[in-house]
Every structure is written in structure tokens, then in C-alpha cells.
Design a protein around this nucleic acid. Structure first.
Lengths: 140, 140
DNA sequence: TCTCTATTTGCAACTGAGTTGCAAATAAAG
DNA sequence: CTTTATTTGCAACTCAGTTGCAAATAGAGA
């Protein structure tokens, strides 16, 4: 595992005043190194035999979500996919594009779009956009 | 159960050339009468002792989704919530607003929203918007 | 209207991601 | 180094969703 990535993970934990433990560093590092949201299983798979117990991954993700380090991005095949929150504004994350052919999901970091104009009385905490379609690789 | 609603359900099935069966009519009627997306459990609950078996509801929803009569709107507490597709344009459904206090979800039928401008090569099939916040009742 | 067949239904059993309780391990404050 | 609140691993559980199969049935054709 990349040392710089680990240091980044440790810094994130310190910043949020969470205890720095090996499982937490590993989970954050796994997510940091992925360019698309990961399931708990995928995190475990990426960490291989170094992986913490699945319950630990589960609870680590809960802590990280609670501290706003990680977001639940979307559900696919009954599994939540997690990603770092560091690219998201307080109320809006980037859209996620899922290809219905190859089932891969991409984060659209570079597209812009407005916030929905909510009816009077409602307060927005977060807006998420999910897109399904055919990715460029699959439409070739 | 309202006769008009049943007739509407039968018409929907005929239009899609699906067999008209009691369970299908009941499931569609339940969804038609609700103003927000329902889970399989909620559909069963609304139909009471008239309710078909849960497997039948499950498979009925699959058929209806396949025929584009129904959409999976969103997941909450590990349960899919289903709604009729008849208010949706081919590629965009209305946004869904979920209150993080009372956990109720409202359909925002009346807000307009542009489609995200996808990177070259990607084709959009559907865009969904999900909003979390505080509803007007809870912010009072 | 009756017959026939592909489709649909109900039941029972299974699946697996997520979730919980608890005792052992440990981060970090003092 | 000591102490304690927090975190971890294990094992067991939950339950929405899913599957296989035999019985029931919608609706096409005679």
C-alpha cells in the first residue's frame, strides 16, 4: 500500500478527531485509491488478506459517514457503494453515471448543473443525481 | 376498492398486452391510489387480506417495470419504493424529496429541472434526482 | 362455449448484505 | 506505565429479495 495514501488517510482521521486505527486507515486508503464508489465487499477484496473483518468495515464506514468523510453514493444490486465526500459541496455531490450494458459507474466530477428550486418551506440538505445510460466504451 | 381505479389498472395492462389477473390489478390499484412510492410490504399492507403472496407482488412488479408501467423510485432502509411511471418523461422522472426528520418522501411533480450535459460518447436513458432535507411540516 | 397451453400464482426454502451483542484488544489521555 | 473509553473480531441473526416447482388460470383457438 502506498505510503502517501496512508498518510492522507491518517490526516483525514486526525482532522475529524477519530481514533487512528489500522482498519480505518486501510478502508480510507482503499476508497482513496478507487476512482469510483466501492461496496464493502470490494473494499475487502482490494485489501486482500490484510482486510479487516466485514463487521469492522461496516462500522468503520458508519463512523466515516457520521464524520462526513464518506458518503453512501448509491445502491446497486442491493449493495451500497461508498465514496469519499471530499469532492462534494455541502449540499451537492457530483452526479453518478451507470452504464446499463457493462454496469460500471462513473463519477461525473466535471459537469455542472443547478440545484432544484424547492417549494416554500422545505430545506435542502443534499441533492443527488443519478444517470443511467450507455457509456462511451459500450456504444462503440 | 374503487371501481374506477380498477378500470384504470385493467386499461394499463391491456395497453401493454399483459395478462389481466387479479393480483396485477390489485398491485397497480394500490400504487395508483398512493401519492408517494410504495414498498412491496406497503403494497401488501394496503391490500390487506386481499393481498397476493409476496412472491407474486415481487414478480408482478418485475413485469410492470419491464413494461414501463412502474419504476423503482429509490431505496430506503434496504427496501425499494415503487411508483407508476405515467408522470415521467421518457428520460426524466420527477425529483423525490425525503425528510430526514420524519422520513416521509414526497414527489416533486411540479419542479422543472434540466438534463445534465453528459460528456461526449455517453447516451442518457434516465436521470433521477433525489433530495434530502427537512419538509415544511418538520421545520415548523 | 369448451379445450388447450403458455403464463402466472402460491408455497416453501434459500440467499446474502447488512446488523447486533459481547468479550478481547487497543488507542491515546494522563 | 496505567487506565479507560473506544474499537475490533467473531458468531449469530435479520429480513427483503429471490428461486424452483407444482397447481391454477387467462385467453387464444376450435
Amino acid at each position: 500500500m502506498n505510503t502517501t495514501v496512508k498518510q492522507h488517510a491518517v490526516a483525514l482521521l486526525r482532522q475529524k478527531r477519530l481514533r487512528v486505527t489500522a482498519p480505518r486507515v486501510a478502508v480510507i486508503a482503499a476508497i482513496l485509491q478507487s476512482d469510483s464508489p466501492l461496496t464493502q465487499q470490494q473494499i475487502a477484496a482490494q485489501l486482500g488478506d490484510q482486510s479487516p473483518n466485514k463487521t469492522t468495515i461496516y462500522r468503520t464506514l458508519l463512523s466515516l459517514i457520521n464524520a462526513d468523510v464518506v458518503h453512501r453514493a448509491f445502491v446497486q444490486q442491493r449493495q451500497w457503494h461508498f465514496e469519499l465526500a471530499h469532492h462534494c459541496s455541502p449540499i451537492q455531490c457530483h452526479p453518478h453515471f451507470t452504464c446499463i450494458r457493462c454496469h460500471r459507474t462513473e463519477c461525473l466530477h466535471d459537469v455542472s448543473y443547478p440545484l432544484v428550486d424547492l417549494p416554500k418551506g422545505m430545506t435542502m440538505y443534499r441533492q443527488q443525481i443519478r444517470i443511467e445510460g450507455i457509456c462511451s466504451a459500450c456504444s462503440a
